[in-house]
Structure formats: C-alpha cells, structure tokens
C-alpha cells in the first residue's frame, strides 16, 4: 500500500453521491415507466398495446450503451439541447430498465388468479378499483424479487455513465489511474468493486424487507431469510 491510499479513497468516495443519485433516479423512473408500460401491455386497446410493445421491444432490443450515446451525443445535435450528464444517465437507466420492468409488471398482474378479478366484479368494483385495490396490491408482492435483480442490474449500469463523464465512481477511478503506480491500481479497483458490492447488498436488504412486509400483508409465510447476495433467477436479465 502507499501514501496515496487516503487520496484514492477520498477521490473515489466523491463519486459515490453521483452513483447513488443515478441509481435512485433510475430506479424511480424505472418503477414509473414499468408500471405504465406494463399495464399498457395489458390494455384492451390495440393501439395502447402496440405503443407499449414498441417501447418495450425498442429499449430491450437496442444496447443500453447505444441509447446512452444517442441521448447524450445525438440528441443535442438534433435539437440543440445539451443534457446534463447525470440527467442523461438517469433518463437512459430508467428508460432501459423500465422496458424490462414492464414485462415484470405484466407477468405479475397476470399471475394474480382470475378468481380475484371475478370476486371483485361480483362485488361491483369498477375497473380502476379492481386494479388498484385488489389486483395490484397482490401483484406488487410478486414483482419484488425480479425487481430486486433488475435494480442491481441498474446499479451496475451506472458505471456506463463513465462514458459521458458524469463524475461517478468509475470515472473518478479512471481519472486517478494514469498518474498512479501499479500497486495503487489494486486499491482503486478493490475499493470501487467493494463500493458497488455494498450498494448491491443495500438494495437487496431493502427489497427483502419489502418482500417480507408484502408476504405479511397477504397473510403468507414470510420468505425464508436468505443470504444477502443476490441469487438471480435464470433468464432474469
């Protein structure tokens, strides 16, 4: 280890707020878009289904990196509006993961037994109440585990903001790198990876708590306590 240790750590930590802001902003946008597009995928209207399908397939089908470059480098050329890097990052993270989240929402809503819908009809609840009061509260509990994986993917994707110089952890590290001797590189990368690991664990802890609360609310047995490491389901990306 070297005398640079303190400087390296403090520089990397300067990037943490941006990484967290990008993650939280991205997650917020993801949730909103996933709910809107996911419910739109189930709409009775063909037009609504078509447009949500175009959004979902469009953002899942093109690379997140390309989306980032497009938004950050092409859009300004098109409309003459330069977007703040962090804002561009949140937008791309949210749009991209919202498209994946839409499929999660659609699947979770469809997984609620049809009998629940019929029970609500028999009580003369209207379409909005049926969805808001009966179906969604149950579907949300099903969404939590896959959303946990999705949010960790999103956290990992914040590293891509390095390419648009958003001043997050990865970029801070790469700015330090050229001036440092080999031995210090170990510190840079170890600290970076540990920060991401801790943030991933934090996301998982929050999501597991929500899962337990959700299970209690539905009168189910809470899921068994598992290791905090994510154990993504196969095919979940």
């Amino acid at each position: 280890m070297s005398d640079n240790l303190g400087r390296i750590i403090s520089t990397l930590l300067e990037g943490v707020p941006v990484t967290i802001q990008a993650t939280l902003g991205g997650i917020a946008l993801t949730i909103v878009l996933a709910l809107i597009a996911g419910l739109a995928l189930l709409s009775k209207s063909r037009t609504v289904r078509f447009f949500s399908r175009v959004y979902v397939e469009g953002f899942r089908g093109t690379s997140e990196m390309v989306q980032l470059f497009w938004l950050y480098f092409v859009l300004p050329a098109l409309v003459g509006l330069q977007i703040v890097p962090l804002f561009a990052g949140v937008l791309v993270l949210g749009l991209n993961h919202g498209a994946y989240g839409a499929e999660i929402v659609r699947g979770a809503v469809q997984s609620v037994p049809k009998a629940q819908h019929e029970g609500a009809v028999a009580l003369n609840l209207g379409p909005v109440d049926r969805m808001r009061r009966v179906i969604l509260p149950q579907a949300v509990v099903e969404m939590l585990p896959p959303f946990n994986n999705l949010f960790i993917q999103l956290l990992k994707s914040t590293a891509l903001l390095y390419f648009i110089s958003a001043q997050e952890i990865t970029q801070k590290g790469e700015e330090l790198r050229p001036a440092l001797p080999m031995g210090d590189l170990t510190v840079i990368y170890a600290v970076e990876l540990i920060i991401y690991l801790l943030l991933a664990i934090a996301i998982t802890i929050v999501m597991r708590a929500l899962e337990r609360a959700g299970a209690r609310r539905l009168g189910r047995k809470p899921p068994p306590r598992r290791k905090v490491f994510s154990s993504a389901t196969a095919g979940g990306v």
């Binding site: 960790i152 990992k156 994707s157 914040t158 590293a159 891509l160 390095y162 990865t170 590290g173 790469e174 790198r177 080999m182 590189l185 170990t186 990368y189 970076e192 990876l193 991401y196 690991l197 991933a200 664990i201 490491f229 994510s230 154990s231 993504a232």
Partner: peptide, 23 residues
C-alpha cells in the same frame, strides 16, 4: 460468482486490463 454478478462488468474489464495483466 456472487461478487462478479453484483459488480459492474466495466470495472472488471478495467481491473483485468490495467491491473491483472501487467501484474
């Protein structure tokens, strides 16, 4: 496995390219 899955590929690439290979 859990460590690699929970951290960004980009940093893993940097670490392998600039740190591990010279090392």
């Amino acid at each position: 496995v859990e460590f690699i899955r929970s951290t960004p590929l980009l940093i893993q690439v940097f670490a392998f390219y600039y740190l591990l290979q010279p090392a």
